[in-house]
Write a protein that binds this DNA or RNA. Structure first.
Length: 587
RNA sequence: GGACCCGUAGCUCAGUUGGAUAGAGCAGCUGCCUUCUAAGCAGCAGGUCGCAGGUUCGAAUCCUGCCGGGUUCGCCA
């Protein structure tokens, strides 16, 4: 179905066109002044500026044409030339009913016929996920849900960090410790053991130790570099050991992402493109796109128009190892071959912006991106209450697993305090606490614009009051409860209708869903969806406190309000699902 | 030092194709639970939008300079 804003814009656009002005001036949007009108059109101001005429006169002419349309209850000109519009309740009701009967709830089809690959999460093999991975995962997941809902064919890829220096550091640390000598015996030709020589817990201890050793001792760093290069060159024992790291890590990552309700279509990573890296590098060398510089093989990407220094992308280090820029390029080749997307979106920390600019320029120069637009959707840092990157009380990196446990415990505490759910099963209580805890985390993260750093204050978010995930779940749960009770009493929801100011406001917000989805896609900005959902829940709460539904004696009015409640629930649940937030049956 | 980002209410944040009286949550103060879940609702109070200029009928938004904070600048990811 056509979005209401689009319908109104077309009507106003036609009015401008009839006056010999560009149709584009007809853009209609929700009013900034709800006390004055439901919608506004500011096009007369821009049109008058372009034509160097009086804006008020332009507005008068356009308004005269709009006034004859029975859709409008009010057409007014205000201030320098704003056109203020109100719809009749009948027009509003008709569109609300259409929305209620639309299976997609008016979702825009901006991505119809288009394919994209979205790259997010990016956890490292052999390292537990920490809060730093939260933003990429949560924002990326919301974007993949949004783009899919808007009609795109989406392929998500976790893009594991599994091929760089950190692998060499692990390998050389394990060699030092003498944990699994068979993997280091160059003469060994038999089968390596099926059982991993290290557990995930071992790796969590070994990795920081290896990293520290390399930092403290240049000789150790050199060993790690050598091991990295040998791994990439295909040394058999190292490859086998790498496979064990991967297997062990996958179990933990699966657990983490499933607890967050995040799904990836592909579990590829840097190592996945190993086989196509060498041919790609050879090809780039042959075509003189890659050249030698200071012992390394690089792709120069600077341009004359650059105002800043643009270092070349390094493909192969002087020691023969490849870097993540190389694997990123090879991954583009792989994605173009497999998915041939229109868009590849990278949801990665903003601090890597320069890196992506280098990679994108290199890809363009090499002509390997097919029809795909390459775009980096960066995000800011999650900080603690001191404004510095989030740490535990003792100053360590907080594991994502522990963070989820903390918010879940807070939710459970609140349930107990409220005395709600005393008669629920232990399983349901745990399920509610989990859903509320995850909602707290995700909403806190998503409601900030992605590029700005934000402060994560567990204490504040755990209050579950005001603009929080649980507030939205609570609003949905209350509607579910009403609908359940209505069903018990034999009251069936009817078509929604507009009578009161509270209903009118709610209708307007419900009908604005496509605008929120379009704007969120355009800005790759889930915070727009958060704002929309919060306002919707607020609008409903007001309606809820103003009209007691089940005790309404007028059966038709009661049915209409049940219908409006059901529609609100459907829209709210849908937006929450776009944010990756689940609604419990009750809470 | 160069480039990029940020500076909005006591706190945390929305708000840029330039538009009407700059919004929300928290904290503070007032009310509202013998009717559908008070994790709620209604209201009050709180800001020279970092500073100074400029463009414009109109600037939190665009331009210039300055102050303050952050990120980044070839062999880590």
């Amino acid at each position: 179905m056509t979005a209401l804003s689009a319908e109104l814009s077309a009507i106003a656009g036609a009015a401008f066109a009839a006056e010999g002005l560009s149709q584009s001036f007809g853009q209609v949007q929700r009013s900034d002044r709800p006390d004055l009108a439901q919608f506004q059109c500011n096009g007369a101001l821009a049109a008058a500026k372009a034509a160097k005429t009086n804006p008020r006169a332009v507005a008068e002419k356009v308004a005269a044409r709009l006034k004859v349309n029975p859709l409008f209850a009010k057409v007014e000109i205000a201030g320098p030339g704003f056109i203020n519009l109100d719809l009749t309740d009948d027009a509003l009701t008709a569109r609300g009913v259409a929305l209620a009967h639309d299976g997609n709830l008016g979702a825009p089809e901006t991505g119809k016929g288009k394919a994209m690959v979205i790259d997010f999460g990016g956890p490292n093999v052999a390292k537990p996920m920490h809060v730093g991975h939260l933003r990429s995962s949560v924002i990326g997941d919301s974007l993949q849900r949004l783009f899919r809902a808007n009609g795109w064919t989406v392929t998500s890829d976790i893009h594991l960090g599994d091929w760089g220096l950190q692998m060499g550091q692990l390998i050389s640390e394990i060699e030092h410790r003498g944990i699994a000598p068979v993997y280091f015996d160059p003469d060994f030709t038999g089968e390596y053991p099926a059982q991993s020589p290290v557990s995930m817990e071992d790796l969590e201890e070994i990795y920081p130790a290896a990293s520290a050793a390399c930092k403290a001792d240049p000789a150790r760093l050199e060993e790690a570099r050598k091991a990295t290069a040998e791994l990439q060159a295909g040394r058999r024992g190292y490859r086998a050991l790498w496979q064990q790291f991967f297997n062990v890590s996958k179990v933990g990552l699966d657990r983490e992402f499933s607890s967050l309700g995040i799904h990836f279509d592909m579990w590829k990573g840097e190592a996945s493109v190993d086989a196509i890296t060498v041919p790609m590098v050879e090809d780039l060398k042959a075509r003189q796109i890659a050249v030698e510089s200071e012992g390394a093989l690089v792709i120069p990407v600077e341009r004359n128009s650059d105002k800043k220094e643009m270092p070349p992308l390094i493909l192969v280090k002087s020691d023969g190892a490849v870097l993540y820029g190389t694997t990123d390029l090879a991954t583009i080749v792989d994605r173009v071959k497999e998915q041939n997307p229109d868009l590849i979106l990278y949801v990665v920390d903003q601090r890597q912006h320069l890196h992506f600019e280098q990679v994108f320029r290199a890809a363009e120069k090499a002509g390997i991106a097919g029809k795909a637009t390459l775009e980096h959707a960066g995000f800011g840092t999650m900080n603690g209450t001191d404004g510095k990157p989030f740490k535990t009380r003792v100053g360590g990196v907080m594991k994502l697993f522990d963070l989820i446990a903390m918010v879940t415990a807070e939710a459970k505490k609140r349930l107990t305090e409220q005395g709600i759910g005393e008669d629920y099963s232990a399983e349901e209580r745990a399920d509610i606490a989990r859903k509320v805890g995850i909602a707290t985390l995700k909403f806190a993260d998503l409601s900030n614009y992605r590029l700005t750093d934000y402060i994560f204050d567990l204490e504040r978010f755990s209050k579950f009051e005001g603009k929080t995930g649980p507030y939205l779940q609570y609003a949905a749960v209350r509607i579910q409860s009403i609908l359940r009770r209505a069903a018990e009493q034999g009251f069936a929801p009817g078509d929604p209708a507009t009578h009161s100011p509270e209903e009118r406001t709610l209708f307007l917000q419900l009908l604005a869903l496509p605008d929120a989805m379009t704007a969120a896609e355009k800005g790759r900005a889930p915070n727009i969806l958060c704002d929309y959902a919060f306002t919707l829940a607020q609008n409903y709460s007001r309606f809820y406190s103003e009209h007691h539904i089940l005790s309404e004696s007028d059966a038709a009015l009661r049915a209409a309000r049940l219908g409006l409640s059901a529609l609100t629930l459907a829209v709210l649940t849908k937006v929450l699902s776009l944010l990756g937030i689940e609604v419990p049956e009750r809470m």
